[in-house]
């Protein structure tokens, strides 16, 4: 009956509450704002890229717990990675949700979203911050 207990495990609540990376960057090289039109989730993601790697990341996220937890995971883990690595994680995360493949390598905390596999309408909540990060990285290259 209480399937939502599995979805809203402590890790998601803790990550959402910690809001790693919340804020703005003074010297962003790329920025993207993405919305989820279904529920109104909204992410503003900023990156500072130096020598092809993320030197700093910051986000302002208005949204559900899943969206906020995903943005927070990025805040905790993305620094030091390059665009190819982020693209690989985003693809692996989408596959984990849709095709039940393993948790993206090097991002063990993303296992907190495994229970969301059962709720396809929520996948976009989890993926939105990653899409925003990729869009910010694309912007940074221009």
């Amino acid at each position: 009956m209480n399937d939502s207990n599995a979805l809203y495990q402590d890790a998601i609540k803790q990550f959402a509450q910690a809001a790693h990376g919340h804020g703005q960057l003074a010297a962003a090289t790329g920025e993207a704002k993405l919305d989820n039109p279904l529920c109104g989730d909204r992410v503003r993601m900023q990156v500072e890229v130096a020598s092809g790697h993320i030197a700093a990341v910051a986000h302002e996220t208005k949204g559900c717990l899943l969206c906020r937890a995903a943005a927070s995971a990025i805040g905790a883990r993305a620094v030091g990675q390059d665009e190819a690595a982020i693209e690989s994680v985003a693809t692996a995360l989408e596959n984990m949700l849709k095709n039940e493949t393993p948790v993206p390598a090097g991002w063990p905390e993303l296992s907190m979203f495994e229970p969301a596999r059962a709720y396809p309408s929520r996948h976009r909540c989890v993926l939105l911050p990653f899409r925003a990060l990729l869009a910010a990285l694309t912007e940074s290259r221009r």
Binding site: M1, D3, S4, N5, G63, C64, L65, L66
Partner: peptide
């Protein structure tokens, strides 16, 4: 509390 989270928990209670 975000409405999607509220509705998700409510769904588990039918």
């Amino acid at each position: 509390l975000h409405p999607h989270d509220i509705c998700q928990v409510l769904d588990a209670h039918q």
